[in-house]
Amino acid sequence: MTPSGEYRHGRHVVSAMHVHLVFVTKYRRNVFNDEMLRRCEEIMIEVCDSFEAELREFNGEDDYVHLLVHYPPKVAISKLVNSLKGVSSLYLRKEFTGRVNHAIMHGHFWSPSYLAASCGGAPPTIINAYIEQQRRPT
C-alpha cells in the first residue's frame, strides 16, 4: 500500500483513514518531560511503521499523549493501540526507570483505557445528506 497525499493506494482499495488516539498514564501520574516525549514519539513512529501506518502528528503533556495516525484498512485499531502502548511502555520504563519508578505506577505505564476517534473527511451529517440524495434505480 503506497501513500499518495491523503490517499493510500493498494491493489484493490483506495483509502484515507485517520484516527486520533489519546493515551493517559496510569493513575494520571505526571511522568513526562520533553526528553521522554521525544523518545515516546520515536517509539510510536517505529511501531506505526511496522503496521504500514504513518504517525502524522504527536504531542503530549505531563500525563498524556495525542497521536494522529494515517493507517491502512487492514489494520485493526485495537491491535495498533495494543502494540503502541505495549512497546512504548516497555522501552520508556526501561530507559527512564528513575522517573517512572518515582511516579509509583505499580508496574504499569499506561492506563488500560484510551480514546480512539475517527477523523478526516466530511462530517457525518454531510455524508448522510449525500447518501440520501443518491438516485436509487426503480
Rank of each mutant, 00 (worst) to 15 (best):
M1K: 01
T2E: 15
T2L: 14
S4G: 04
G10Y: 09
V13Q: 14
V13G: 13
V14M: 06
S15G: 04
M17R: 15
M17K: 15
F23K: 06
V24A: 02
V24E: 04
R28S: 10
N30R: 14
F32H: 12
R38F: 09
R38L: 07
R38S: 09
R39I: 00
E41Q: 12
E42W: 10
I43L: 00
E46D: 14
V47L: 11
V47S: 09
D49C: 15
E52R: 00
E52N: 10
E54M: 11
E54Y: 13
N59M: 07
G60W: 10
G60C: 09
G60M: 15
E61Y: 05
E61C: 02
D62E: 05
D63E: 09
Y64E: 07
L68I: 02
Y71L: 13
P72N: 06
A76H: 02
A76V: 03
K79E: 14
V81G: 12
N82S: 13
S83K: 09
K85C: 03
G86C: 05
V87K: 05
V87D: 04
S89T: 12
L90I: 13
R99W: 00
I104H: 09
M105D: 09
H106M: 14
H108K: 14
L115T: 14
A117Y: 00
G120Y: 03
P123C: 11
I127T: 11
I127E: 12
Y130L: 08
Y130I: 02
E132C: 04
R135Y: 13
